[in-house]
Design a binder for these strands. Structure first.
Lengths: 247, 247
DNA sequence: TGTCAGCATTGACGCAGATCAAAAGCGTCA
DNA sequence: TGACGCTTTTGATCTGCGTCAATGCTGACA
């Protein structure tokens, strides 16, 4: 796969999501979002020596549920879906990983979910053994990882409320508001366009709905002039409608 | 509230669930289950000096969502429900805390859920500031807390699958199997009786169902000779039925 | 420029579980 | 012992979302 060159005209455009570490952590575009924020320049240098950039094309599998955790990843560009599957094929997307997100926070031996690239994707990769040894020597990195895990736990609990108690309309509204906030964090400002690189099926599996219901609800929102559907995302027309409905 | 005396005849009986630390962490009945397992005798001594036993009666609130985290808790006896509420009164029980569980693992400033005693309850209580200072000096405690948080994150992800993708019957089966496993861990052996100290409404709010559906499904299971309903719990008759259905 | 494959959308219909309502247990206390 | 309050159970009915099926859209490639 070819990595397109960097652009600066539009931070949130798909082709620009591919920013890599560029072999120097000091200039990493997602450092301030990632666990690396816990490290000083020296530690960053050390960590950098263990890192390698990994590139995945769309649909590529980063790792599978039950696989041994041989590497951990710091996402620098692109989007991944995190999936738990049932034996009969039912799927639950437990989350979407965005730039700055860390995969392997739990330091367990085997992965508990599958990660697949939703878009072309770049990740800063560490061998698990190296990373664990490094974190062992840097307690404030562990602390930071714990903070990240706590944050994830919060999001997981929010998601339980969504799955257990919200209507289809509320689920969609919450999802769109969540994506808006998360992209804002990545871009550093509120985006006009809410990028939705994942397909309707992924959204359905994230929200505990069917693809038909997702489609119906979003299109109804468009008919009701709450949003407009654009290629690769949506644009809010009536922000307060979403604020009122979202979790 | 009076704390009934200790019994030894039946570990899982309600009245015996009230075992406290007894002012000496070394003899704590839940040490091997709790984060304290990370500590050696010296550290345990130090921590003990900061601990105080807190007793809550049934229905008492340990803390509320949004409250400042002034204390953290190590549950030594009893059961608590952890609740997130929506403005309109809808509730999601995000979990049940059993002896050995730690409340406040995330070290955040405010609680993200409400905790209420389902049964009379004893918890080992630490002032947050003390506990945080202590953990700062004991990296392996942080590591252990991170392990516990990771474990919770796993359970949360399991629960997302349950909420998003399982049928009512599968949800109930999964819940009962989960409670059986958790009580087994606390008791140190597989209990014949699966204690369910929480009411039907709590179970419904945990599983994303209504109380009527919970009641119907459990009673149907009894009619189908899969289990028998007894005071304060259930007893499996057809274990393989549950193993097949559960997540 | 046409064909094809993979989504997404739309419509008709069905059903699992919600809602509404009533009755039955069951522990507490006078 | 009986009355009260709370929880659970059961029944009847409704409905939000799933299921099934067809059609439309878009981008890739010949």
């Amino acid at each position: 796969m070819d990595i397109p060159p960097r652009h600066s005209d539009h931070e949130t455009h798909a082709s620009c999501a591919l920013r890599s570490r560029g072999d120097d952590c000091r200039f990493c575009g997602v450092r301030h979002l990632s666990i690396c924020q816990a490290l000083n320049i020296n530690e960053l240098d050390q960590l950098e020596k263990m890192a390698s950039d990994s590139v995945f094309e769309e649909r590529a599998v980063l790792f599978r549920e039950e696989d041994e955790v041989s590497s951990v990843f710091n996402l620098t560009a692109g989007v991944a879906r995190l999936i738990r599957s049932l034996p009969d094929g039912r799927r639950q997307v437990t989350g979407f990983a965005l730039p700055g997100d860390f995969l392997g926070i739990s330091l367990e031996k085997t992965w508990r979910y599958t990660a697949e690239a939703v878009t072309p994707l770049v990740a800063c990769r560490f061998r698990r053994s190296n990373f664990e040894a490094f974190s062992e020597k840097n307690p404030h990195l562990i602390k930071k990882m714990h903070e990240f895990a706590s944050q994830e736990l919060n999001m997981a609990q929010d998601h339980m409320v969504l799955l257990g108690r919200l209507t289809a309309e509320e689920k969609l509204a919450s999802f769109l508001v969540e994506m808006k906030k998360r992209w804002a964090r990545v871009a550093g400002h509120e985006p006009g366009l809410i990028r939705l690189p994942m397909g309707r099926q992924d959204i359905a599996d994230y929200l505990g709905l069917t693809i038909e219901t997702v489609s119906r609800v979003i299109n109804q929102m468009q008919r009701d002039r709450k949003l407009v559907i654009v290629p690769d995302g949506v644009r809010f027309v009536d922000q307060s409608y979403f604020d009122d409905l979202a979790l």
